[in-house]
């Protein structure tokens, strides 16, 4: 097996793997998509929502925001990280857009990977009741709970966006048939790409090790 890195940008990596079978590369690809854990908002307690979006729409949007942790290994499935959001439309007629950077995390090591993701638009409109003009303001107040999860349960826990490989044409002229695959992996920002690849490989190794030990103990080899 031979690995050659072609390029490595901020959130994207391309490398060539050769001397392995398709099934191996595919297992690695699937591990990256479905097995590598990351944090995402899973539960939302909405205290007040007078915005134009329904509670469900708001919760879905929050869930899709990639969250970045200083060290993902510090967390396990039972951990719950609370993020709060409180926002109100302006005092005068107009609007404000609530961005992901306004989410306040209870854990200083966890924060939205991208700060400029618009969550909701809050609009202030003028109202006239019995000849008295007032400004109706919209408010959002909520607590979001982030949990560790895996891509196999929901796409919001999938650390990669593009994660593909394709077979390279045989360069050696046909005599020695060694297959080579170009892998393209792009992270959504929650984990560094190289970490996703190594973590997926580690998960695969752990699974095989469990298999080996289980067989050993059961058959007394």
């Amino acid at each position: 097996m031979d690995v050659k890195k072609e390029y490595h940008k901020d959130n994207e990596v391309r490398f060539v793997v050769s001397g392995v079978k398709v099934r191996f590369v595919n297992a690695l690809r699937r591990a990256m998509i479905a097995e590598v854990p990351k944090l995402a908002i899973d539960e939302v307690n909405i205290y007040e929502n007078t915005s134009l979006l329904y509670d469900e729409q708001l919760a879905l949007r929050l869930g899709l925001i990639p969250l970045k942790a200083a060290d993902i290994h510090e967390y396990n499935e039972d951990d719950a990280i609370s993020l709060t959001l409180k926002a109100e439309s302006p005092e005068r007629v107009g609007y404000t857009v609530v961005y992901s950077k306004e989410l306040i995390s209870a854990d200083p090591k966890v924060e939205p990977a991208l700060g400029n993701v618009p969550i909701v638009k809050l609009v202030s409109t003028e109202q006239e009741i019995n000849g008295i003009r007032t400004v109706a303001r919209q408010r959002v107040s909520l607590e979001a709970i982030a949990r560790l999860g895996r891509g196999r349960n929901h796409a919001k826990w999938q650390p990669v966006t593009i994660c593909t490989f394709k077979e390279l044409p045989d360069e050696s002229g046909g005599s020695s048939k060694q297959k080579a695959f170009v892998f393209t992996v792009e992270s959504d920002g929650s984990l560094p790409v190289d970490e996703i690849v190594t973590e997926a490989a580690r998960i695969m190794r752990d699974k095989f090790e469990t298999l080996v030990t289980a067989l050993k103990t059961q058959q007394g080899i």
Partner: peptide, 19 residues
């Protein structure tokens, strides 16, 4: 409101919407 992510690949595209 612009969708947070691309429907097909999942890349966060809403971040660049304002610009």
């Amino acid at each position: 409101m612009i969708p947070i992510r691309c429907f097909t690949c999942g890349k966060v595209i809403s971040e660049v919407w304002d610009v």
